[in-house]
Design a protein around this nucleic acid. Structure first.
Lengths: 372, 372
DNA sequence: ATGAAAGCGCTAACAA
DNA sequence: TTGTTAGCGCTTTCAT
């Protein structure tokens, strides 16, 4: 086992610290620190000597010690349901890109949509002294643990979800407007019987109220519900009565019900002529079943989905979709977070702009046609 | 603004620390720490009092301070090309799941396949005092910065890549064997002209040597190259001479060349009867072009790919593929990492098992048929 | 069984 | 312009 000649066999001398640098440069710790931090006064000569020492020793400041002193760790947290989900993975990339620019790093925590895990996650992140958190909360109602974070002076931005009654800034897609536009498009093509197929969280029973002239959805703003709202609004604007049989809200926990719901619609006396699938999994299921049944798209059935996925452009016909860029949403959330971190620390912290709406785009392809 | 009566209006009293707990429990800091750490002696009564204080104050130990003392941060790093890539996102999830069990957190860094960014990433992670790193290195040759990490006593595990001449443990799929098996399958179906379409990193020019009786690939073990090797081995075993015209290795930086390469093969006097696409993007491109050209799969052309993706089961015919579970690979890498972290710190650290091979599976679907 | 005190690496208020 | 020093929150000898 070779060792530098003469060097005492110290097992694994850890990295040089600022004392080593100071000694090497023949100055005091404080001076070295000043040079490195670029504050206070120091003579040109000393600056050079210190920098040289840094280079020669390969010194890298210890961010843990720095965090200890300053309270700022240079780390932010991202809390989401599941990082392997494409939506979150892209959002994560957006967050990372902004973080890199700000010389910060990102810790990810998965919650699997469990409130308890989310609570643990915030606690752990706090104990790591993160400078801020981007979170896609499990619940838009139970956010005491999130409020606790902001109250501790650590900014939080909510991604893809809007927290009711809280000063927390949220970054969302214009789900309602985009859906309205999409449905308008179908209506413009002569469709009158347009089905809505979406998902719901188990925690939010779809409180759908369909009256003679008006239909509405109770509950907080959530992507899934806002899309239903957009759908109802478009119908209402076109004076098309909403039909309960054409609206399916399937719990995410019972994926097998997706196919059933669609099959039921196809079996109706007056089946729909167009399908609006409000999320990627639903679009996939619908396309699947339609193909299986040999239903011609768009001749017999138009299909329009929310979320662009790889495959929508590989199948025939290619699926028309409303796209939201989760990458952009992640970026926007991180931008807002760093902006808040810059501000006078919590004081009136999260300004007025409680909401950033990231635009969606409509990608017209070949799965939508005129009504039969 | 309500405040506890009598409590001085301190602006934002940060979280309680162990001093507060000790005082609250009427013991010394040391005693509180002992109780919390569960070591040394302490009377039953004191234990109770301390625990009570912890509960009442909502005390949570500061992991930064702990890290400072102990050198262990409870954080590991994951360095990959791009977390929004499905492969890495799944691997990340695997890593997170193991980390959670070990009460650790994960910091992610993207390199975009830039060596310089990878070097920065390792440096930054080290300065955060991570306990270990899982990395998918950009280069399998230039790994000085990675060696430096292990030499500093911080274990590293390489994911999906094998570092030449280094004691670093790697977790890989059985790329070569799986490809051989896949090609064998095609040969068994009567195919003789089997094309190989794969990608290469710009840094590793495809040093393909095709002799009269033997063909080989120079260079280190890398998924892309190992798949070529598997292909050549299968052909060789079946005494089918390798044909340079049927092997396309396209640089990842020139994606437009993928279609060209395939088009060229289709235009050959004796075009292939089967296509083996060695990665997801290639499979996608191939399917795309084949559809465009109206080439019937598998009647006119069999298609067999590496990597299972969502869409491969949505298109018709569904694509037969060799699957590797990046989630499992992530898990395996993290398991190995924590195992190393447990061992006597670097001392003979990375044992003998330099390599973990995660099995692949062959999913037979409908895109492969007998040779014409 | 408990407490006093040192020290991890760094920054910054203060003194010189 | 530079150095001295206190202290961030925690763990862990060492004394008692």
């Amino acid at each position: 086992m070779a060792t530098e000649p003469g060097s005492r066999e110290r097992p694994r001398r850890s990295r040089p610290n600022i004392n080593d640098v100071a000694r090497h440069a023949g100055v005091s710790r404080a001076t070295a620190s000043r040079v490195l931090g670029g504050y206070g006064y120091s003579s040109q000569e000393v600056v050079e000597r210190v920098n040289q020492a840094v280079r020669e020793l390969g010194y890298e400041p210890d961010r843990i010690a720095r965090t200890m002193r300053s309270g700022k760790s240079g780390v932010i947290g991202f809390v989401c349901a599941d990082i392997s989900d494409a939506f979150f993975a892209s959002a994560m990339r957006g967050i990372c890109d902004v973080a890199r620019r700000e010389k910060s790093q990102v810790i990810v925590m998965n919650t699997d949509n469990q409130l308890s895990q989310e609570q643990d996650a915030t606690r752990v992140l706090l104990s790591h002294k993160v400078d801020g958190i981007v979170i896609t909360p499990v619940s838009v109602r139970e956010h005491g643990h999130i409020d606790a974070v902001t109250e501790g002076g650590v900014p939080v931005v909510s991604l893809d979800r809007q927290l009711s009654d809280s000063g927390i800034h949220s970054v969302v897609a214009d789900n309602e407007a985009a859906t309205t536009a999409a449905i308008d498009h179908l209506i413009g093509l002569g469709h009158r019987r347009i089905a809505f197929l979406g998902s719901t969280q188990p925690e939010e029973p779809p409180a759908l109220r369909i009256g003679r002239t008006r239909a509405s959805v109770a509950g907080p703003s959530r992507p899934s519900l806002d899309r239903v709202r957009g759908y109802l609004r478009a119908l209402s604007a076109a004076a098309i009565p909403a039909d309960r049989d054409l609206i399916a809200l399937v719990s995410l926990e019972e994926p097998e019900r997706r196919l059933e719901a669609l099959a039921a619609m196809l079996a109706l006396e007056h089946p729909p002529t167009a399908l609006f699938t409000a999320d990627g999994t639903m679009t996939k299921s619908a396309f699947h079943l339609l193909s299986e049944r040999g239903v011609a798209i768009p001749a017999e059935m138009s299909l329009l989905g929310f979320d662009d996925l790889d495959w929508t452009t590989l199948v025939r016909p290619r699926i028309s979709v409303v796209v939201q860029s989760s990458y952009d949403m992640g970026r926007a959330a991180a931008e807002e977070l760093f902006a808040q971190m810059g501000r006078p620390a919590g004081e009136g912290g999260n300004g007025q702009g409680r909401r950033t709406v990231v635009p969606t785009r409509f990608l017209e392809r070949e799965s939508v046609g005129v009504a039969r």
